[in-house]
């Protein structure tokens, strides 16, 4: 049997959504970004909102997200995605707007934009990828880097007396009245991917209800930055990241 005999429409069990472009992603093997991109794109396809969705890419590893999402996309300055998304949503209140940011972008340089977009209750979906490190610039300490965790700017481990504490941005914004749905997920196992997809679906559905910010943190790995192979990185994430950044819903809509 030839491979062409196997690749037939009736044998298909899975197909790339056309809400992703055919561009080859630049992400490191084992990185969570590609999976999160895929499930966002699948949610957009399943909801039938490809033509009504505008996304905002950050500065960081996902800066080129606009090459992968087959929806209209804007690239924002470092940390400013929530402000850019605000500008879009305010002039297009009926469209679906999502921002996609890493931890340095969302929780360090863009802290003010994040908190105030959340506090205003902008009716947007915010996706937050937390891997505890600056990936793109080569593995520097992030606001989310764990105590004792090594990075290129904390080579002996994060010393909290000198460098301050890791920031739980998601718990922080969950306290604000403008956030409607806040959850923390991961994509390291098929089961977690399904849960994250469900969360992202809800985060997009919520925009129809006009209730404010839906915020999905995805605790992810950075095997390159952490200097591990993908399997080691996922195990390290489970053993070290999850205890400090526990998975699960942090704020669930009360009126559902």
């Amino acid at each position: 049997m030839d491979i062409k005999d196997i690749i037939k429409e009736e044998n298909l069990v899975y197909k790339r959504t056309n809400v992703l472009t055919e561009n080859i992603m630049h992400y490191c093997p084992g990185c969570g970004h590609g999976t999160v991109h895929r499930i966002i794109a699948e949610v957009i396809e399943e909801m039938g909102i490809q033509e009504e969705t505008i996304g905002v890419a950050p500065v960081g590893c996902a800066v080129l997200a606009y090459n992968y999402f087959n929806v209209d996309m804007q690239q924002a300055a470092h940390g400013r995605a929530p402000a850019v998304a605000t500008g879009i949503k305010r002039v297009f209140p009926e469209k679906f707007v999502f921002s996609y940011q890493g931890d340095g972008d969302l929780a360090a340089i863009g802290t003010a934009e994040t908190i105030h977009a959340c506090n205003r209750g902008e009716n947007i979906t915010m996706i937050f990828i937390n891997n505890g490190i600056y990936g793109m610039t080569g593995g520097q300490m992030a606001p989310t880097t764990l105590e004792g965790m090594k990075s290129s700017t904390s080579p002996y481990g994060r010393d909290v007396e000198m460098m301050g504490y890791p920031l739980k941005m998601t718990e922080l914004i969950a306290n604000l009245p403008g956030t409607y749905y806040v959850t923390r997920q991961s994509v390291h196992t098929p089961g977690n991917v399904r849960k994250t997809k469900k969360a992202i679906r809800m985060a997009f559905e919520n925009q129809k209800l006009k209730k404010g910010v839906s915020f999905v943190e995805v605790v992810s790995n950075c095997n390159s930055g952490w200097k591990m192979n993908p399997v080691q990185a996922n195990k390290w994430m489970v053993d070290n990241m999850f205890p400090f950044y526990p998975l699960g819903d942090i704020k669930v809509p009360q009126d559902k």
């Binding site: 402000a83 998304a85 500008g87 305010r90």
Partner: peptide, 16 residues
């Protein structure tokens, strides 16, 4: 919340 935010809101709306 700041001029930084307002010019980036302008960016988002202008890009539409």
């Amino acid at each position: 919340e700041s001029e930084t935010a307002s010019i980036n809101m302008v960016y988002g709306a202008a890009a539409c």
